[in-house]
Design a protein around this nucleic acid. Structure first.
Lengths: 191, 191
DNA sequence: GGGACCAATATAGCGTCGCTATATTGGTAT
DNA sequence: ATACCAATATAGCGACGCTATATTGGTCCC
């Protein structure tokens, strides 16, 4: 593993274990056993390293979403993608929070846009089968919003008296969103 | 207006106009025409001032929510509260993003907890009329998540090709959430 | 093989950040 | 008047992000 990757992994480790607030170039350099200019040689700035780490996280996550699902039913694919998204946030809450903060800050993260594009493609597949009720764009907004809503419940457990969301609530959010974008066929929710 | 309020307003100005990333004690001090120790005398730390500013924003917002609604129907009250929440995020996206980032960072913000408590109280009023389907806690999670989901659509317009969410999508999110927590009476959604 | 070149890394230090030890002011109570 | 205390200022510390400069260690060309 070359120095560039060592730095990236060190950054991801800090983000995942301590959160963005504790992130610093010095800490990353110490973990990577490298001096400051090395970091700047490879990543240009602290923000550059941060962006690269987020992109890497988003990229890995995207890859897992692409590969895992293998159903012919586009609704199943969409649902599993939703589950993947929320599982990711639940498993690595600090990293998810950092990514969300960056999105909120208005930074453009290519991997995030690719993930959104993948969502649109998957919803397009549903539309192609004539099973979509609203426009693809509206449906994508709805599904994306609902996945983030569910993720937020995981990450902000503390605000809500430390209680993690029940699986019933999570399924409700997911199925509400799915139901509202799908045409009401008899086997609307294939479960 | 005393020095304490001048500092608070300066902080809110920076947050609203430049975002949390540009926030610094020196910048706030410069705007307030005050030196560093004055800030620390009144707020203890940069984080303290930030928290106070968020609390103030949340407090104003909470006050508007308390006062505006005046219906006897608790469902109407809940819906208007939801609308207020989302309108706030849409009108002051940088401030909303900063607040959300702090919640994501795990800080405990009394005003945010009060807002959540108010939500629980309002849902409790619905439960008292026997119109609630799930538990109050589950319903609160659902409504809170859906309001933040809708707010996120406003704030993250850039990620989604710069398109703000359509009012149709926003209403869909809101009514989906309401429908899923209310018992299916004939006049379930009073609209 | 011996320079020429260039990417990679180190040393050292600049400017700014959050924060604080200390001093000075100005009002208030005794 | 004096003592006290809240409020504000001066000045400076340590940690931060970042960079000017120097040194290493390959790789290519002749």
């Amino acid at each position: 593993m070359d120095t560039r990757d060592i730095l990236l992994n060190a950054a991801l480790k800090v983000l995942e274990e301590e959160g963005e607030a504790q992130f610093s170039t010095r800490k990353v350099c110490a973990i990577a056993n490298v001096t400051a200019p090395t970091l700047y040689h490879h990543y240009g700035s602290a923000d550059g390293l941060l962006s690269a780490a987020m992109a890497e996280a988003f990229g890995q996550f995207l890859e897992s979403k692409k590969s895992v699902v293998q159903s012919a039913d586009p609704v199943v694919v969409l649902r599993e993608g939703w589950n993947d998204y929320v599982r990711f946030a639940a498993a690595r809450p600090r990293l998810y929070a950092a990514m969300m903060s960056r999105v909120l800050d208005g930074a453009d993260i290519p991997a995030a846009e690719q993930a959104f594009a993948l969502l649109i493609a998957r919803i397009g597949a549903i539309a192609a089968k004539g099973r979509l009720r609203p426009t693809v764009a509206a449906a994508a907004d709805l599904m994306w919003a609902s996945a983030n809503a569910a993720s937020l419940l995981h990450v902000t457990a503390r605000l809500r008296k430390g209680a993690p969301p029940t699986s019933v609530v999570l399924e409700q959010i997911r199925e509400d969103a799915l139901r509202s974008i799908l045409k009401p066929t008899t086997k609307g929710r294939s479960r």
